[in-house]
Design a protein around this nucleic acid. Structure first.
Length: 522
RNA sequence: GGGGAUGUAGCUCAGGGGUAGAGCACCUGCCUUUUAAGCAGGGAGUCGAAGGUUCGAUUCCUUCCAUCCUCACCA
């Protein structure tokens, strides 16, 4: 659409000129607001006598908002204006606001922002309305908004006409989406409340909120493809973080015993309904604690957020009732597989698992065919994940799935040494993943703090990368040094905020919980 | 990247080989308690883009672009 050529825009530009000719600044600098739509409606009391009615006229409020509907009736006009707290009807009579103001009003459109001084009253049809004694244009809109009309039928059913529903436009022009669609507004308010609640719970337990770099010279803390960028002055290749894990652990080494950070992570991978290239996580790290402590805190953090929003632990997501009440179900990955398939993967040979995967048409990257632990992980994902609807912790993954996690405490040092020599032996680590509605919504470890093993595991990752495996963890010698300096026993957690918000706001697509999701330019 | 669907007025949509339709929005007029306000009249479109077939394409074909769904990829 060519802005200059659009008839509606042209018309509005003409109106703008007319307003200026009347000596009125269409973009004044300020307006004193003393109330809002919700407050007025909540505080309104119907007068019981004529005397009271007259008295109410002295109760002048000042509100401002955007015009969302206009009904002109000659020398009087009704509009609905929308402010930060909701919507309210305004009644303007020429006789009362004066001829100039009424002339201006005639030049106004849906989308314009006005200030109103007046007194609340109830109309014949029963709507609480501000009877305007003064009206001021605060900002003239020249780009036409979609006009959404609501009809409330006799049965009380709400019908929305001409909703602004084009998904692409809604994402690309979120400012319009927010003006027009109340449920969108509501979702993002809830998003903020969820983040605030998580922060509150962590602060209650004396976690310190910190900030770590987004631009990193070595990325790490997860297995993912990074975005690559460049610092000109230093002539340096940099990465946008895929995780902040290694920095938060450095802080644990540095003596902050409890830290957390809300971060944008960036992963250069596919986009779908649960993945956006930039997404939000909160990670926290706690010294002198293990993954059992993390499970407890995880449940509490999420349950608190749900309670904060809904005063109940039950939430409907796309027709499924999810109950976030603590304690959540806990199941070991190995047991989940056994329950579902009858297979005892610990006893099985690698080749037997391979055979099972193939005969069940489960696809996987051939490069990992010789890694028994990763095959088990795939087997789990393909067979068990679909049943994980209610909040469930899946525990104790094979060590091959991560180089940053500590083996189970049940192994003796000697056992571990022997297991490492035998490729058929599966070392399990103290890791858990919380699943809700089949989605991983986080990750947690009893963190590896043995510098010798840490170095060895990262070196293996590098070897695997050279062998052609994708998304292996890069070497970070400074991180190794930090662990060598000595990290106390520690546990850490990451939560995918976007997915949690999706679940708690009944949002189908991750883009519905990200204000400005990535869109290709036209 | 594979498969499926969609793209027509500011918004929501219908239509269909012969040059474009509705409701709302917009414009003009009437209207001082309306509320999907009403009544009367009017204007508005490169039919996503580019090629091709055809006397003629918004419609059929091809390619491209964008979006959604789905699969693959993504601890």
């Amino acid at each position: 659409m060519q802005t200059e050529q659009n008839e509606l825009i042209k018309r509005r530009l003409e109106e703008l000129e007319e307003i200026k000719k009347l000596g009125v600044n269409p973009y004044p600098h300020n307006f004193k607001v003393t109330s809002n739509s919700k407050q007025i409606i909540d505080n309104f009391k119907d007068p019981e006598t004529e005397e009271e009615k007259e008295k109410q006229k002295e109760n002048i409020v000042s509100i401002a908002g955007r015009i969302t509907a206009i009904r002109r009736m000659g020398k009087a006009t009704f509009c609905h204006i929308k402010d930060d707290k909701g919507r309210i009807q305004v009644y303007v009579k020429q006789e009362e606001v004066g001829e100039l103001s009424y002339k201006i009003l005639k030049l106004l459109d849906i989308g314009d922002i006005i200030g109103i001084e007046g007194y609340p009253f109830r109309t014949k049809t029963g709507e609480i309305t501000v009877h305007s004694v003064q009206m001021q244009l605060l900002s003239k809109s020249i780009y036409p908004l979609p006009v959404v009309k609501e009809e409330i039928t006799e049965t009380g059913e709400k019908i929305i006409h001409d909703a602004f529903a084009d998904i692409e436009l809604r994402y690309r022009q979120r400012y319009i989406d927010l003006i027009v669609n109340d449920n969108v507004r509501d979702t993002f308010i809830k998003r903020t409340k969820i983040i605030k609640s998580i922060r509150n719970t962590l602060e209650k337990y004396n976690f310190l909120e910190v900030e770590t770099p987004t631009l990193q010279t070595i990325y790490g803390g997860a297995n993912a493809k990074p975005f690559i960028t460049r610092h000109n002055a230093l002539g340096l290749q940099l990465y946008l973080r895929i995780s902040n894990e290694l920095f938060l652990k450095r802080l644990i080494v540095g003596g902050f015993n409890r830290v957390f950070e809300f971060v944008k992570d960036f992963r250069n991978e596919g986009i779908d309904r649960t993945h956006n290239p930039e997404f939000t996580q909160v990670e926290w790290y706690q010294a002198y604690a293990d993954y059992f402590d993390s499970m407890n805190l995880f449940e509490e953090v999420i349950e608190n957020a749900v309670l904060e929003l809904y005063d109940t632990t039950k939430v409907n997501y796309q027709g499924t009732e999810l109950d976030f009440k603590r304690p959540w179900k806990r199941i070991k990955m190995i047991d989940a597989i056994k329950e579902k398939t009858g297979l005892d993967v610990i006893k099985m040979k690698r080749t037997e698992i391979l055979e099972y995967l193939k005969s069940n048409n489960i696809e996987f990257d051939n490069k990992i065919a010789n890694r028994k632990g990763l095959l088990i992980d795939i087997l789990f994902e393909e067979t068990c994940k679909e049943d994980l609807i209610q909040p469930t912790f899946v525990l104790d993954h094979p060590i091959d799935t991560t180089p940053l996690c500590k083996p189970l405490r049940t192994y003796t040092l000697q056992q571990l040494e022997e297991m490492k020599k035998d490729e058929e032996e599966i070392i399990l680590v103290e890791r858990f993943e919380p699943y809700i509605n089949k989605w991983e919504i986080g990750n947690s470890y009893t963190e590896l703090n043995d510098p010798i093993l840490q170095r060895k595991l990262l070196e293996e990752q590098v070897q695997r990368g050279r062998g052609g495996e994708e998304d292996t963890h890069p070497m970070d010698y400074d991180f190794i040094r930090a662990i060598e300096v000595g990290m106390p026993p520690t546990t850490g957690v990451g939560i995918g905020i976007d997915r949690v918000v999706m679940l708690l706001t009944n949002s189908y697509n991750i883009r519905d919980v990200i204000l400005f999701p990535l869109m290709k330019p036209h």
